[in-house]
Write a protein that binds this DNA or RNA. Structure first.
Length: 799
RNA sequence: GCCGGCAUGGCGAAAUUGGCAGACGCAAGGGACUUAAAAUCCCUCGAGGUAACACUCGUGCCGGUUCGAGUCCGGCUGCCGGCACCA
C-alpha cells in the first residue's frame, strides 16, 4: 500500500467524530481514566509544535487506555481571558470576544488536524458566561468564608499596562505581559488568603504521585520554616520590636537590628529620631526600586542607622544599634530582623560595610573571613555554652524565651497571599457590591453570572482603574442587603482564576445548577494523570490545589486533592537550540508540518525526538526519518501471509511488552524505537504473518492513528482500529531458551557466550573456559574467583 | 547565593537492581537501480591501531568503592530550570 497522508487524514478525523468514539461516557461499567492536559491560552499566533508535544504525551496514553478497555475522559478547552486579547483589542479596536472566538477557532482547527482524540463534546471556554458564572460562584464562597479580602499595600504596578501585578506575574521586576519595568505603588487590592491553606497544601503533597522535583519545588514555594518570634525592646520607650528567626539559639551573637524601610516604627517615633531626613531619603530611594532591583541588583549592602533609637537584646540587656536597610522585606516575617553577623552572610556583609561588632557564638569558622553557618559548639552564649547540637540549643532557647515571656516558637511561610484582581476589562467581573451602609456585599447567587458589560473603549483609566469603572450603568446598582444606592466592584479577576477549577467543569460542562454534579464528580474524580509544563508547577498548580482544598472544605467536591499524578514535558527548542520565539524566527507551525509530512509523522516525531521530560531541538531531517518509517510500514501491508512467521513471535511479544510499559512510563521515544526495530525485523523476513502485522499496527495506532486505520481498512478489517483491543503479550513467548552473555576476564569484556538461560555456574564456567580467547587469557594464571550472573555476565578474576 | 535537574559519537539520543557503552533515528561516505534526478535498496560509520583481526583508549574534570562504574560515593567545572538579601 502506498501511504498518501493527504488523502486519508481528513477522512478518518471525520469518521471518528461522526462515530463519537472518543466521547467519554458518564455511566459505564468500564474502569475510568481521566487524563488532563493544560488547556491552552488561544493566542493570536496560533499553536506551535511545543503545544503538540505537550498534548501528545497523554494523547498516546488516552488512546492506549481506550484500547485497553477504559472509559477515558480526555478533554480540551480554552483559557481565554487575559491581557493579550485585550491589548490586541485596544490596538485594532476589535472586541476581545471577536478576537478570542477567532483564535479559539484557529486553535481548534489545528488540534483537529493533528488528530488528537479529545472529547470535543465537552470543550470549555473560561470566557463563556455559563463557565465564569461558576468562577464567580467560587469567589463568592471564598468571600463568605473570609478568604477574600481587601487590603491597602504596596503592589507591583505596571505603568504601561496600568495594572497591578502579583509577584508571580512580575518576575524579574518586569511585567509578564509587556515587559516594562514594574514600580511599587500603594493601592487597595483583593487578596485570597492562600496562606491559610499552606499546611494543607503541604500535607496534600504526601497523598499524590508527583515526581520528586515537582514536589520539592512546590514545598519551596510554600517555604515553611520553623523558628521563634522574639520581642526586643527599644531603649527608653514602651515599644516591642518583634522579630522572627530560625536560629533563636544565636541570640547572644546579635550585635544590631535591621528593620524594613517601610516599617511603621519609624513613623511612630519620628520625633525621637534625629536623622529623619537621611531616613526619608533612603526610604524614597527604596520606593523607586522595583522589588527586582531591591532584592537582586544591590550586591553591596546599603542602609541607614536610625539615630536616637537603640534596641535592647532581651537575653542580655545589651544596647544595640538599629538600622533600616532594603535587604529586609516588610512582606516576610515581621519586617524586622535580629542581625547575627557571625553566622549569617548577609548580616556579616552589612556589619563589615558599617564597621559593626561580630561575635562568634558557634565554633568552627573564621570570623575574619566570613560568616560561619555550619554546626559547632556554642560559645559566648551564657546558658547555651557547650551545646553542640543545633536542635537542642534551639529548643533550650525557646524554652527560655517562653519562660521569661520574651518570645515563643513560631512558623513562617515564604508564600504570600494571592493578589487577586486586575484593573482590566477581559476578565471575570468580581461579584461584589460596595454599599455605603452595609460595606462589601456579595452579588446574590441567583444574579450570577454577573456579565461583562459591552464597552466601546478597552483602555484602562489613567489612574489604573478598570475600563468597567467608566460604565455608569454597570457601576451603579442597589445594595442587595439594604436596597440603597451602591456601586459595583469594577476590578476583574486574574487569568489564574478560570484555570483553577476547569478540570471540574469538564466532568459536567453544561450543568447550570452546580459547577459539576456530585454523582459525576464521584465517578470521575480525581484527575488520574495531569501533564503540563514545568513552569506551571508553582503558580497554576498551587492556586488550583488551593481552590480544590477549599471546595472540598465547603462540600462542593468529593476529594481532598485534585490531581492524583502529575508529569511535565520538556520544551521543543528551535533548530538553533534556542527557545522558540517569534523574534528569533525559529518557530515551527504544526500545520506546515502536517501539510508537508502529515499529522502522523508530526505526532511520531515530537515523541521520538528525545526524552519526553527533556528539551530537545527541532530537526527537520529527523522528521523526514519518521515519515520514512511510516512509508515502510504502509509498504509492508502488501507482503503478508496467513500463517505467522515463527521466528518473529518472540520479537513481537517482547515489543508488545516494551511498548505497553514504555507508554505508561512516558518513554515514548524508546517505544517508537522498539516499533522501528520490529519493523526492521519484519522486513528482514520475506513475508510477515497477517496477525503479527496487525498486532504491530495496533501498537503503532496511538502514534499514527490515521495511517493505521487506513491500512486496517485496506486489509479488510472491520470497525475502527482505534477502539480495537490492545495486544496482550504472552509471557512465555518473551523468554528465550538461550541468551548471549558477556564473558569477562578481570572485569574486561572479552567474548560473547551463547548459553542456556538457566545454566548453572558450573556449566557456565566450563563453557566460558572452553572459549579459545578466554582460555588464552587465563593461561598460566590462577583463577581466584568466578562471578556468574545467570543471563548477564561471567567474569573470571585471574592473577 | 539557595534548591532542583542535566552533561554519552558529526547530530537527536539509548542503556532493568552496577554487568557486551552508543539501541533507534538523522547526517555523512561508498555502492546498486536509473538516460538523469528523486524515491528505494545494500554496505561503512566513537578515536587510535591493523591488510584484516588482535589490542589500546573512550560516557564533562579529579579521586574513591567494586571482580566490574555512564550508573554508586567524595571533590570540582559547565549548562538548563525554579526561587531568590526569606531572617
Amino acid at each position: 500500500m502506498k501511504y498518501n497522508f493527504r488523502h486519508i487524514e481528513q477522512k478518518w478525523q471525520n469518521a471518528w467524530e461522526e462515530a463519537g468514539i472518543f466521547e467519554a461516557q458518564d455511566n459505564s461499567d468500564k474502569p475510568k481514566f481521566y487524563g488532563l492536559v493544560e488547556f491552552p491560552y488561544p493566542s493570536g499566533a496560533g499553536m506551535h509544535v511545543g503545544h503538540i508535544k505537550a498534548y501528545s504525551g497523554l494523547e498516546i496514553v488516552a488512546r492506549k487506555r481506550r484500547m485497553q478497555g477504559y472509559n477515558v475522559l480526555f478533554p480540551i478547552g480554552f483559557d481565554a481571558f487575559g491581557l493579550p486579547a485585550e491589548n490586541y483589542a485596544i490596538k485594532t479596536n476589535t472586541h476581545p470576544r471577536v478576537v478570542t472566538d477567532q483564535n479559539i477557532k484557529h486553535f481548534s482547527e489545528q488540534l483537529k488536524r493533528v488528530g488528537f482524540s479529545f472529547d470535543w463534546s465537552r470543550v470549555i471556554d473560561t470566557t463563556d458566561e455559563n463557565y465564569y458564572k461558576w468562577t464567580q460562584w467560587i469567589f463568592l464562597k471564598l468571600f463568605e468564608n473570609d478568604l477574600a479580602y481587601r487590603d491597602k499595600t504596596l503592589v507591583n504596578y505596571c505603568p504601561s499596562c496600568k495594572v497591578v501585578l502579583s509577584n508571580e506575574d512580575s518576575q524579574n521586576g518586569k511585567c509578564d505581559i509587556c515587559g516594562s519595568e514594574v514600580i511599587q505603588k500603594e493601592k487597595e487590592v483583593w487578596y485570597l488568603r492562600i496562606t491559610k491553606y499552606a499546611d494543607k497544601l503541604l500535607e496534600g503533597l504526601d497523598t499524590v504521585d508527583f515526581p520528586e522535583a515537582i514536589r520539592v519545588q512546590e514545598e519551596n514555594w510554600i517555604g515553611k520554616s520553623k523558628g521563634a518570634f522574639v520581642n526586643f525592646t527599644i531603649d527608653g520607650v514602651d515599644e516591642k520590636l518583634r522579630i522572627y528567626t530560625t536560629r533563636p539559639d544565636t541570640l547572644f551573637g546579635v550585635t544590631f537590628m535591621v528593620i524594613a524601610p517601610e516599617h511603621p516604627l519609624i513613623d511612630t517615633y519620628a520625633d525621637k529620631i534625629t536623622n529623619m531626613d537621611a531616613i526619608k531619603a533612603y526610604r524614597d530611594e527604596c520606593q523607586k526600586k522595583s522589588e527586582f532591583e531591591r532584592v537582586n541588583l544591590v550586591k553591596d549592602k546599603t542602609g541607614v542607622r536610625i539615630e536616637g533609637l537603640e534596641a535592647v537584646n532581651p537575653v542580655n540587656g545589651k544596647k544595640i544599634p538599629l538600622f533600616i536597610a532594603d535587604y529586609v522585606m516588610m512582606g516576610y516575617g515581621t519586617g524586622a530582623i535580629m542581625a547575627v553577623p557571625g553566622h549569617d552572610q548577609r548580616d556579616y556583609d552589612f556589619a563589615k560595610a558599617f564597621g559593626l561588632d561580630i561575635i562568634e557564638v558557634i565554633k568552627g569558622g573564621d570570623m575574619s573571613v566570613e560568616a560561619y553557618t555550619g554546626d559547632g559548639e556554642m560559645v559566648n552564649s551564657d546558658f547555651l555554652n557547650g551545646y553542640t547540637n543545633k536542635k537542642d540549643s534551639i529548643e533550650r532557647m525557646i524554652e527560655y524565651l517562653e519562660e521569661k515571656g520574651i518570645g515563643e516558637a513560631g512558623v513562617q511561610y515564604k508564600m504570600k497571599d494571592w493578589a487577586f484582581n486586575r484593573q482590566r476589562y477581559w476578565g471575570e467581573p468580581i461579584p461584589i457590591i460596595h454599599c455605603p451602609n452595609c460595606g462589601m456585599v456579595g452579588v446574590p447567587y441567583e444574579e450570577l453570572p454577573l456579565k461583562l458589560p459591552e464597552v466601546e473603549q478597552f483602555m484602562p483609566g489613567e489612574d489604573g482603574k478598570s475600563p468597567l469603572a467608566k460604565i455608569d450603568s454597570f457601576v451603579n446598582c442597589t445594595c442587595p442587603k439594604c436596597g440603597g444606592a451602591a456601586k459595583r466592584e469594577t476590578d476583574t479577576m486574574p487569568q489564574w482564576a478560570g484555570s483553577s477549577w476547569y478540570y471540574l467543569r469538564y466532568i459536567d460542562p453544561k450543568n447550570d445548577k452546580a459547577l459539576a454534579d456530585m454523582d459525576k464528580l464521584k465517578y470521575w474524580m480525581n484527575v488520574d494523570w495531569y501533564n503540563g509544563g514545568m513552569e506551571h508547577v508553582t503558580r497554576h498548580m498551587i492556586y488550583s490545589r488551593f481552590w480544590h482544598h477549599f471546595l472540598y472544605d465547603i462540600g462542593a467536591v468529593n476529594t481532598f486533592e485534585p490531581y492524583a499524578k502529575r508529569t511535565a514535558q520538556g520544551m521543543v527548542l528551535g533548530s538553533d537550540n534556542q527557545k522558540m520565539s517569534k523574534s528569533k524566527g525559529n518557530v515551527v507551525d504544526p500545520l506546515e508540518v502536517v501539510e508537508e509530512f502529515g499529522a502522523d509523522t508530526l505526532r511520531t516525531y515530537v515523541l521520538f525526538m528525545g526524552d519526553y521530560g527533556a528539551s530537545s531541538p527541532w530537526n527537520e531531517s529527523s522528521v523526514r526519518g519518521c515519515k520514512r518509517f511510516l512509508d515502510r510500514v504502509a509498504r509492508l501491508a502488501d507482503n503478508l501471509q496467513d500463517a505467522n512467521v515463527s521466528s518473529l513471535e518472540s520479537k513481537l511479544h517482547k515489543t508488545i511488552r516494551k511498548v505497553t510499559n514504555d507508554i505508561e512510563d512516558m518513554k515514548f521515544n524508546t517505544a517508537i524505537a522498539a516499533l522501528m526495530t520490529l519493523l526492521n525485523d519484519f522486513e528482514a523476513e520475506k513475508k510477515v504473518g497477517r496477525d503479527q502485522y496487525v498486532a504491530f499496527l495496533k501498537l503503532l495506532n496511538p502514534f499514527a492513528p490515521h495511517l493505521t486505520e487506513e491500512i486496517w481498512q485496506y486489509l479488510g478489517g472491520e470497525g475502527f482500529l482505534s477502539v480495537s483491543e490492545w495486544p496482550v503479550f504472552d509471557e512465555a513467548k518473551t523468554i528465550d531458551a538461550t541468551v548471549e552473555i558477556s564473558v569477562q576476564v578481570n572485569g574486561k569484556p572479552r567474548e560473547i557466550l551463547s548459553i542456556a538461560v538457566d545454566a548453572d555456574q558450573e556449566a557456565a564456567e566450563k563453557a566460558g573456559l572452553a572459549l579459545q580467547k578466554i582460555a588464552k587469557l587465563v593461561e598460566g594464571k590462577r583463577i581466584v574467583k568466578v562471578i556468574y550472573r545467570a543471563g548477564k555476565i561471567l567474569n573470571f578474576v585471574a592473577k
